[in-house]
């Protein structure tokens, strides 16, 4: 007796779900124009077009995955969590730095070929994979860890809500390098710390629990530090986490100015 009851309740639900899922899918044909580079084959990079049929509500990463899995297995790129948390798949899509896993195909004008290339300013190793060592070296140089003096407290380090809000924005950084590789100063001068390193310095400089602000400010006061920033806001536009990167850099500049005067 219980069987029909289950069928009765389950059937309309799944039918509605099916309708919702299948009803709106309108597959379109798109062209991915990917900048391929393989130093073992040719010293120059080439643009290669891939055509595929996709749901425009899918993400660019899904399309790239389909190319790799179904058309050309040699396509090389980084991705890990595929949900905008790990920061692996930052790439230049239609000329803008974005995370492929957070960009929907319908949002990047699929009527025209979608250009995909590696992020700029860093050495391309293969296809969309770049050498991130200089990026992480700049990150390490600002000492992105808690610096304190004296004995550690037996309980947690208490902080007020207000104190957290002071640097909350810059804690959101996932180190995807979208900001740093969109910065024209970084393109031309790889010694510049870059927005990401400054953002992560900001996260500790304005943390009330941290006591290493003076050291970090001194590092960023150098020739390749915050004063190279030209406030072009490319970093703020590029950040997939919506961090106000330029504002953070300006706050570090202001801290440097008000620290002594």
């Amino acid at each position: 007796m219980s069987t029909p009851t289950i069928d009765e309740t389950a059937a309309p639900h799944s039918a509605a779900l099916d309708a919702a899922e299948s009803g709106k899918v309108e597959l379109i044909t798109i062209t991915l124009r990917i900048r391929r580079f393989n130093p073992e084959e040719h010293p120059d990079a080439v643009w290669v077009d891939y055509q595929l049929t996709v749901d425009p509500k899918e993400r660019v990463l899904d399309a790239i995955n389909r190319v790799k899995w179904e058309q050309d297995g040699t396509l090389t790129y980084r991705r890990s969590c595929a949900h905008g948390v790990c920061g692996s798949d930052a790439m230049r899509i239609n000329g803008k730095n974005r995370l492929a896993c957070k960009t929907l195909i319908k949002d990047v004008n699929p009527e025209k070929p979608i250009t995909i290339e590696a992020i700029k300013g860093m050495t391309v190793l293969k296809d969309l994979v770049v050498d991130m060592d200089p990026f992480f070296q700049a990150y390490r140089d600002v000492m992105p860890f808690l610096i304190t003096k004296g004995n550690a407290p037996t309980r947690e380090r208490i902080q007020s809500e207000e104190d957290v809000q002071r640097f909350e924005d810059t804690t959101k950084c996932i180190l995807c390098a979208a900001c740093t590789s969109s910065c024209p100063v970084f393109w031309n001068d790889g010694q510049y710390f870059g927005p990401a390193a400054i953002v992560n310095a900001h996260r500790f400089i304005f943390d009330s629990r941290d006591e290493g602000a003076e050291q970090r400010l001194e590092i960023l006061n150098d020739r390749e530090g915050v004063w190279r920033c030209r406030t072009t806001f490319n970093c703020t536009d590029a950040c997939p986490r919506g961090i106000e990167v330029t504002k953070a850099i300006q706050e570090v500049k202001r801290a440097l100015l008000t620290r002594r005067y």
Binding site: T123, V124, D133, A138, D141, I219
Partner: peptide
């Protein structure tokens, strides 16, 4: 393999020379 020329390198030593 063709040589990939790194356009610039940020190394520990470059960060060390502080003005």
């Amino acid at each position: 393999a063709f040589l990939i020329e790194p356009p610039r390198k940020r190394t520990k030593t470059t960060a060390g020379r502080r003005s």
